[in-house]
């Protein structure tokens, strides 16, 4: 199954050094499940960050030589059309650009391919040219979808962790650089309204109004304690256990 993984412009949150996105590294691990020699595809001026993908399981890396400010959509679409991959994997949102997560969907629209989101596992289907994709759903549920190939699949963070990095294979991996001609079909990304990011705190997870001792029971009987616990679980919508015998 000829597979490629789209690699974006991730940077390390602490050092700001270019690096491979963790989600895309997870995508590589999935790709390696169905393809012995998966490749990666990156659009950018250099491969400083994404070269690590070769140490995480890719055997080759295709780089479309594009400025970071150029919208890579048309160049990627053209390359993917030429290469005819069976499977194109990507993270839910590419990193380092506008991070809208729309690119895989745009590519799907241009290439006329089906797209599935949030894969945590992929296996070849029973029939040829099919793929079984497990999608992550809430509360640990999975949706197992059999899809006809070729297709685009995005990967969920709950997919298995990336394969540990190995320096040797990275050194031996193939890097193919592809010039992209014609700025005619490449629109520049809009950078006009950008401003420095301001860190905003997230909402607190702890439920409010939990003053110490507000809900404290000292030495209740075990039965009473059990009833209190189940009542609390049901009242807060954690679980529902149906009618209990001694209510």
């Amino acid at each position: 199954m000829k597979t490629t993984v789209l690699l974006s412009h991730a940077r390390h949150p602490v050092s700001d050094r270019p690096q491979l996105s963790r989600l895309e590294a997870q995508a590589i691990a999935l790709a390696a499940e169905v393809d012995e020699a998966p490749s990666g595809l990156h659009a950018g001026r250099n491969e400083t960050g994404v070269v690590a993908a070769l140490g995480h399981g890719l055997t080759a890396l295709d780089r479309l030589d594009l400025a970071d400010t150029t919208d890579p959509l048309s160049a990627l679409a053209a390359f993917l059309t030429r290469q005819r991959f069976d499977l194109i994997l990507a993270g839910r949102r590419g990193e380092g650009g506008h991070e809208t997560g729309l690119l895989p969907y745009r590519l799907a629209a241009i290439l006329g391919l089906p797209i599935l989101a949030d894969a945590v596992a992929i296996t070849p289907g029973a029939a040829v040219e099919t793929l079984v994709v497990d999608q992550a759903m809430a509360k640990g549920a999975r949706r197992r979808v059999t899809i006809r190939l070729p297709a685009i699949v995005t990967v969920h963070p709950l997919a298995p962790p990336p394969r540990p990095f190995a320096y040797g294979p990275m050194r031996r991996g193939t890097i193919r650089r592809h010039p992209v001609d014609g700025s005619a079909n490449a629109a520049d990304l809009d950078t006009a309204e950008e401003r420095p990011h301001r860190l905003r705190p997230k909402l607190m997870r702890q439920s409010a109004g939990q003053a110490a001792g507000a809900n404290l029971y000292v030495d209740p009987t075990p039965e009473e304690a059990a009833r209190l616990i189940l009542a609390y679980l049901e009242a807060n919508g954690i679980r529902r256990y149906g009618p209990l015998n001694d209510r």
């Binding site: 089906p114 949706r143 059999t146 006809r148 297709a151």
Partner: peptide
């Protein structure tokens, strides 16, 4: 393109 769907 979607051949089967199963909820687990």
């Amino acid at each position: 393109a979607i051949l089967s769907v199963e909820f687990i």
